[in-house]
Design a protein around this nucleic acid. Structure first.
Lengths: 131, 131
DNA sequence: TAATTTTACTTGCATATACAAATAGATAAT
DNA sequence: ATTATCTATTTGTATATGCAAGTAAAATTA
């Protein structure tokens, strides 16, 4: 199981990196940016829990997107809000087409049904494992 | 799918790290050592393909095990053979009990059936994805 | 046999991620 | 109101991993 789940994740990672290369972002950066566009002002903690990443990882992701002028952060008290820049928002169509392409490239191999079921099962099990 | 597989792998990794902490090895190091004990003289390439890791990663894993005097390498021509040391072999019982413990800790949650099926499905899909 | 290609491994460098500690603001308890 | 605790985020550091380039031996071809 240990190597099975690791291997799946690494191969998915590779496939995803390949897909998002054309927008110059890693898959995590891309998904994070999409979430920010979808919900401007969203906070790092929310991003972390939705992306299933640790808060520190999310901070690093945001930093990089900020360098690229795709998002900006504002600090209000202890809270941080993340907003997309116009340049970030402009990427949205391309990002969406990458999502579609990525989805297609694995569901073409696995079949729509099977891939949906797999995702469902993996999520169910992940939740069960560490509630 | 991208985050689902990543999240599962990270949680499995965490569970595994926890399990193998008592022998002072990471899960990958532990599995590699078991393979070496099981098949003394095994070559890095074989280890890489069985563990589903890249050759360079395997080299790094072996290096660390060598530092800890758990394995030794011999070079014969372009081939490298990896052998367990007595100290390495002594660890075997503990390693095996970690495997059992790790296996138990997730199959306790998922059920024997379900976890076996999941591993099977993940492997099937990984193979299909990148033959 | 000499030159080329292939194979097996290693090394340099880069990325993704997390944990633990550090801030610092918000909330609760005394 | 002051102190203590909790919460949200960031920073320092470490690990696991891979790719691409390097090395060297082996196999193939000419």
């Amino acid at each position: 199981m240990y190597f099975a789940s690791g291997a799946l994740a690494r191969k998915m990672e590779k496939l995803a990196i390949d897909t998002w290369k054309k927008v110059g972002l890693s898959p995590s950066h891309a998904y994070l940016l999409m979430m920010v566009i979808d919900d401007p002002g969203i906070q790092p903690g929310t991003l972390a829990s939705e992306l299933q990443l640790s808060p520190s990882t999310v901070t690093r992701l945001i930093e990089k997107l900020e360098e690229k002028k795709l998002v900006v952060r504002t600090n209000e008290g202890k809270l941080t809000n993340v907003y997309p820049t116009p340049k970030g928002k402009d990427l949205l169509p391309k990002l969406k087409s990458c999502v579609a392409e990525f989805h297609d490239s694995y569901s073409a191999i696995l079949g729509k049904e099977e891939s949906a079921r797999l995702v469902h099962n993996i999520n169910k099990i992940t939740d069960k494992l560490f509630p």
